[in-house]
């Protein structure tokens, strides 16, 4: 398989008042096309910083970042992001929020009808056809996050970047959306990188889990292959010995030898 997203010796240093702060060092990672990779670690380990580097919202102090063979020079619609706090524009309806992205990506070569159809399809994909003309403050947190996902998927990105996409939701809604996210990503087959702090979420969704050591100067501690066949059933896996072993391994990494009182 092709290496799609590639990080070589990536380092991120912040210049603060107290001096240099090394957030990330020696990050080497390559993600294949169509792969689902999770990045997990304790708060402050720089996992969101790492995602921002791939997004292009911030630039690496050192090292090389490639996406589809080209250097990542800045943010762009080929790498769609689902933000933790949904980041919908509150003055636009759900439809218009998605349409803004669709228009940006396909506006040059498609008619208005086609663009509207795309927007409609994206909202249908996440089951929000009925809420299309509601405003963000009129819908629940889970629904907002769905719109965020619809907006990202509507752009047909090369890479889907998820920054703790379900972190702000209650446990039930989160489980529900995890299952849906798994289905969506499987159906579309786009390369996905997700930052999370939820062990079950990581094991359930990922092909590989990248485990980060604690900061400062965090780096990749271990990469765990999740070879559970898909589709994965939450209920069946709850008793599955292999699932529990993998889950245990992530927990051991996070809370065992790694754990330092933060």
């Amino acid at each position: 398989m092709k290496r799609y997203v590639q990080l070589e010796n990536v380092q991120k240093v912040f210049e603060t008042k107290k001096g240099r702060f090394v957030a990330l060092r020696d990050i080497n990672l390559s993600v294949h096309e169509g792969e689902f990779v999770s990045i997990i670690g304790h708060s402050g380990c720089g996992k969101s910083t790492l995602l921002n580097l791939i997004t292009g919202l911030s630039t690496a102090s050192d090292g090389v970042l490639l996406c589809a063979g080209r250097e990542i020079a800045g943010p762009g619609p080929d790498r769609a992001v689902v933000f933790q706090n949904h980041s919908l524009l509150p003055w636009m309806s759900c439809f218009d929020n998605v349409y803004l992205a669709v228009e940006r990506v396909f506006g040059a070569q498609e008619s208005k009808t086609q663009l509207r159809q795309r927007t409609h399809d994206a909202l249908k994909l996440v089951g929000l056809t009925d809420a299309a003309h509601k405003f963000p403050h009129e819908i629940s947190g889970g629904m907002k996050q769905r719109v965020g996902i619809a907006r990202a998927l509507s752009m047909q990105p090369k890479v889907l970047l998820l920054d703790e996409p379900l972190g702000a939701l209650d446990a039930l809604t989160r489980a529900h959306l995890q299952d849906e996210l798994a289905k969506l990503v499987a159906a579309i087959g786009c390369t996905t990188i997700m930052v999370t702090h939820d062990v079950d979420e990581a094991v359930l969704l990922s092909d590989r889990i990248v485990m980060m050591t604690n900061g400062p100067a965090a780096t990749i501690g271990q990469i765990l292959e999740i070879d559970i066949p898909r589709p994965r059933e939450r209920l069946a896996l709850a008793q599955d010995a292999h699932y529990l072993r993998l889950r245990g391994e992530v927990l051991r990494f996070l809370y065992g030898r790694q754990y330092i009182a933060a």
Binding site: L57, G74, P75, F83, S87, L100
Partner: peptide, 12 residues
């Protein structure tokens, strides 16, 4: 900043 990030990711 979130709104501006959306604008940047979309390259509006």
């Amino acid at each position: 900043q979130d709104y501006l990030n959306v604008a940047r990711v979309l390259k509006l």
